Structures are given as structure tokens and as C-alpha cells.
Computed example of a mutant assay.
Amino acid sequence: MEFNILEICLLAALLLCFFVQLYYVLGVHLKLATYQIKELPGAAGEPISVIICARNEAENLAKYLPAVFEQDYSKFEVIVVNDRSWDGTTDLLEEMGKRYVNLKVVHVPEGEKFIAGKKFAVTMGIKAASYDWLVFTDADCLPASKSWLRGMQQPDSSATQIVLGYSPYFKKRSLLNALIRFETFFTAVNYLSFALKGMPYMGVGRNLAYQKQLFFKTKGFAAHMHVPSGDDDLFVNANATAGNTVIQINPETHVWSEPKTTFLSYLRQKKRHVGAGKLYKAKHKFILSAQIIVQFLFYALAITLACFPHTHIAAVSVFLLSIIVRCFVYPKLLHRLNYKELKWWFPILDIILMLFLVINAVLAVFVKKVQWK
């Protein structure tokens, strides 16, 4: 069988995409799949300040905040930053303050100068913190166990300044929920694996810890205060290094979160994330952009070549080989990251996610305005 020049070029491009894909799967993500999860410390260490920013989160605070106070940790405070709420959050926190002596409430007053959104609220929470080690989560989050803070406490190594945690979403019966959880899985596998590889580039504010002194030493969010999002990933991107950052994925330290329930709200959330990603370091933008572009090209080339009479067998073979290789890595990771039921839908969700990421990238070009809440 002879191939023409076009078919040879397309096949070569497909193989190139396949080998680049293997780098991410076997060279990066396999590190997380084979990572030995450590046992949690048996005792609490230094005191901790837990910081939660809330804007009209009365319902979620009433539902999830008690689990934070029930942590098996000897000394910690919980700082809730009430960011101009009008849904009864203020009254709720006043009542909770009577039950929990380690609750500290910080109120963000109304005023035009306080338009920076969540970053301003986070900064106020950090300034109010009594302790150097800060653990962050959100109002709609639930720690997987009472051992969460023991896992997210400052490690023994004095060099460690940042701990990247993991936060899965609650399961709901819908395609949107499956997509959200799979996209969260993909994101987590990426940032946790690259951290293990010595190239930490982001973290999620639903489960993140770092030193207060690091925040002020590096001037906090000053470099990107004008960006509505990025209080978590942009701070980590700017300050995390191979020597000062570790990950924590022990199942007892996972923090479950409420997912978006409509495509519109989810698109708005992802738009904020895309906006923050534009300020990543150049090397991080390159590896992440290359990953998405190569994956998209792989599917596009495989589909195109499958339609050619001379190349359909080769295209299908490379595609199946890709699926087989990834099925040796990702189902284990799905199980490890609390999404084991998604492993049966992995190939389908992978294609849907790729289409979604492309659409979201296009929308990001035309939709400029974003806000926290």
C-alpha cells in the first residue's frame, strides 16, 4: 500500500501527537499514579488559621462550617471573611460565634474601594490570622474526615511553605456533573503530577495551605490584584518551587465541594480560570497549551485519517493504542482521586472534555467581564 505525500504528512503528525501525549501520560501523570500516599501525622503540630471567604453563603455555612470546627486538631482558629453579604450570613455567624470560641469573623464593608473581590477578602483574612500556617477552603466545602487539618498542617521540613491539597466535587446524576468532575480530575492530575515532577504551577483554594510570612514576603496578590480570579492558582504559580512545595492526597484530607448545576454558571467559572491562566509563567503556559493543542490535534488527525481509504487502519490502530496506554494510568488515578465510577466512561468523557475546552477557549476571547460572585 502506497501513501501519497498528504497522507504521509498527516500520519507523521498523528504519530508526533501520540508521542507527545505519551510524555504527559507516562512522563508526568504516571508519577501521581505510582506515588506512595503517606500516613497522616499522629499528632497536631503548630497552630493553624483556617480561612474561609463567604459572600451570601449563609446556607452553605450552616451546612458545612460545623465540620471544620469538629477537626481533630489541638489548636486552630477559623476565620470567616464575610464579604458584604445580604442573605443573613452576618446573623448566622453571630450565632455560630456563641457556639464556637475559635471562630473569628472579619467583615468587608461596603464601598467602591473594595471592588477587588475575593482577593481583597482573602487578604483581610490573612491579616487577621493569629498563626503563621494558613489553610484555605470555601464555604461550600466539606472535609472528608476529622483528620483534614492534621494532613494539611505544616510539614516537619522547614523548607516546605506550600501544601497542595485536593478537592473533588459531589456526585450528581447529570451529564454536566460528570463533565465537571472529569474536568476537575484532569486538572488535579495535572497540577499534582507536575508538582511531583518538580514544577508546581497551581493549586485550588478549596484545599490549599501556605505560610503567612510567605504571603507578605512576596507581597501577596499585588501583581495580579486587577484580575478577579487567581487568589489560589496565581499565588501558587508565582511562589511555588520544587523545594518549597509538597502535595497531600491522603483520602482523609480531601475536601468535597458543591459543583455548579447549570452550564452557564459552569462556563462563567471556567472563564474566570482561563483569565487567571493568562498570567501564568511562560513555561507553564507553554506546557499546558501544548498539552491541550496536541490532544485536540490527535483527535482531529485520527478522525481525518480514519476517513481516508489508505490510512484508516493506521489511524484506528494509533488511536486504540493511545486509549490502551491511557487506560493503564487514568482508571487507577480516577480511583485514587475519588472518581472511580467515571473510569467506565473515560474515553467518552475525554472527547467531550476536549470539545468543551476548545469551546471555552473560544468564548474566553469574546467574553471579557468576569466577577467573583
Rank of each mutant, 00 (worst) to 15 (best):
L30N: 05
R336P: 02
A282V: 13
A67M: 13
L26F: 08
Y35G: 07
L149K: 05
V246T: 14
A361E: 15
S322P: 00
K278W: 09
L355F: 14
E77Q: 15
G275A: 08
L142S: 07
K283S: 13
V358I: 15
K285Y: 01
H107Y: 09
T253L: 02
T253M: 06
H107D: 12
H254R: 13
R268A: 10
Q213K: 13
V365G: 10
V325Y: 01
N237H: 09
I323K: 13
P143V: 06
N250T: 02
V370G: 14
I348Q: 12
Y280Q: 07
K278V: 12
D87L: 07
I359C: 15
E183T: 10
D138Q: 03
T90Q: 12
V367Y: 11
D132Q: 14
V370E: 15
A361S: 15
L349T: 09
F298P: 09
L92Y: 03
L142F: 07
L297A: 14
R336N: 06
M202F: 03
E77K: 10
I48Y: 00
E77Y: 04
T304Y: 09
F69N: 10
I249V: 15
F356M: 12
R326W: 01
I37R: 08
V50F: 04
G243F: 04
G277H: 02
G220E: 00
A144M: 06
L353H: 11
T184R: 11
H284D: 15
N82L: 00
F170W: 07
N56P: 04
V78N: 08
A178S: 11
L10N: 06
L334V: 07
I51Q: 02
E39Y: 00
V227S: 12
H226L: 06
D87S: 07
H29Y: 11
H224A: 10
V255Y: 00
V204W: 02
N102Y: 00
V227L: 14
V28D: 04
L301T: 08
K75T: 13
